[in-house]
C-alpha cells in the first residue's frame, strides 16, 4: 500500500461501527507527556459499554499509558502531564472538582502481576467495600465478598479458607482474587493491564472465560501482548504504535483484514 492511499482513506473511527448505544468512554485528542517525552499523541477513541476493548501494540507504544489515563493512575507520576479530554458517561474525568478516589472506585484495575494485599482472602475483598461504605453490617459485607468471589469464579476454590492469606493462593487464583477485589466495589469499568502474562495456559483460559462473563455487566479494557488473546476475548481492538492509534475497529476485521499496513505487519509478526 502506498502512502497516498493510506492518507486518502478516511480513518476508521470506533463510533462509526459501534454496537447500538452510546459509548461508555469517549477520549478526545488525548496527549500525554512524561517530562519532555511525548508519549501519547492526539488519541481519540470511543469505548463501547458492556464490551471488551483490546489495546495491542509493541512495547512503548502508549497503550498502557492510555489505559492508565482512564482512571488517572498517571496522576501518581510527578513528571506526567495529560492534555485533552476523557469522558465517562459524558463526565470529564479530568475535571478538577472530581473526586479521584471515587473515580477509581468506578474504574477498577487489574495489573500484570497479581498483587493481593498481604491479608486474608476475605480482607482482600472486604477492604474496598468497607472504605467506600458499601456495607452497613457484617452480613452485608459477607454477601459482597461472596458475590465478588463468585463473579470471579473463585468462590468454590476458597470458600472454606477465607481467612487464609491471599498471597498463599496460586498465581491464577491470586489474579482472580484481584479481579474479585476490583469487582467488589461495583465498578462500571475494569481496566486490565496484561492480566494473564504471568499465568499458565489453564489459569489464562479461566481468566479469559471470566472476562467473557464479566462483559455482561462491565465495560472492560484490556492491554495484551498476546494477539490470540485479543482476538479471543475482545469485540473491538485498537492498535497503538509510536504513541498514536493507527487503527481501531471490530476485532474480527482487525485480525482477518486490517486496513493499515502497520497493523498487518504487527499482528502477523513482520515488525522490525
Amino acid at each position: 500500500m502506498d502512502a497516498t492511499a493510506t492518507a486518502a482513506r478516511p480513518k476508521p473511527t470506533a463510533s462509526a461501527t459501534l454496537p447500538a448505544g452510546d459509548p461508555k468512554i469517549v477520549a478526545k485528542d488525548v496527549n500525554v507527556y512524561y517530562a519532555e517525552k511525548h508519549a501519547l499523541k492526539n488519541v481519540s477513541l470511543d469505548i463501547p459499554e458492556r464490551a471488551v476493548m483490546a489495546f495491542i501494540g509493541p512495547s512503548g507504544c502508549g497503550k498502557s499509558t492510555f489505559l492508565r489515563c482512564i482512571n488517572r493512575m498517571n496522576d501518581t507520576i510527578a513528571s506526567c502531564r495529560v492534555v485533552g479530554s476523557i469522558k465517562i458517561d459524558d463526565q470529564d474525568i479530568y475535571d478538577p472538582s472530581l473526586d479521584v478516589v471515587q473515580l477509581r472506585a468506578r474504574v477498577g484495575m487489574v495489573f500484570q502481576k497479581p498483587n493481593p494485599f498481604p491479608k486474608s482472602i476475605y480482607e482482600n475483598i472486604a477492604y474496598g467495600p468497607r472504605i467506600h461504605g458499601l456495607a452497613r453490617s457484617k452480613a452485608e459485607l459477607d454477601e459482597i465478598v461472596e458475590q465478588a468471589l463468585r463473579k470471579a469464579s473463585l468462590w468454590n476454590e476458597v470458600k472454606d479458607r477465607l481467612q487464609d492469606t491471599g498471597t498463599g493462593l496460586s498465581g491464577g487464583q491470586q489474579q482472580r482474587l484481584c479481579i474479585a477485589r476490583a469487582i467488589a466495589v461495583s465498578p462500571e469499568v475494569i481496566l486490565m493491564d496484561e492480566p494473564c502474562s504471568a499465568l499458565d495456559p489453564i489459569a489464562t483460559a479461566k481468566i479469559e472465560e471470566l472476562i467473557d462473563e464479566l462483559r455482561q455487566n462491565f465495560t472492560i479494557v484490556i492491554v495484551t501482548h498476546s494477539m490470540q488473546q485479543a482476538a479471543r476475548v475482545s469485540q473491538r481492538t485498537a492498535f497503538f504504535h509510536l504513541g498514536v492509534i493507527v487503527e481501531t475497529g471490530p476485532t474480527e476485521r482487525i485480525f482477518t483484514s486490517p486496513n493499515d499496513k502497520r497493523t498487518q505487519d504487527y499482528i502477523t509478526g513482520r515488525f522490525g
Binding site: 482477518t256 499482528i267 502477523t268
Partner: peptide
Amino acid sequence: APVAIDLR
C-alpha cells in the same frame, strides 16, 4: 496461529 494476510 496465523492471522490476517497469513491466515488468508
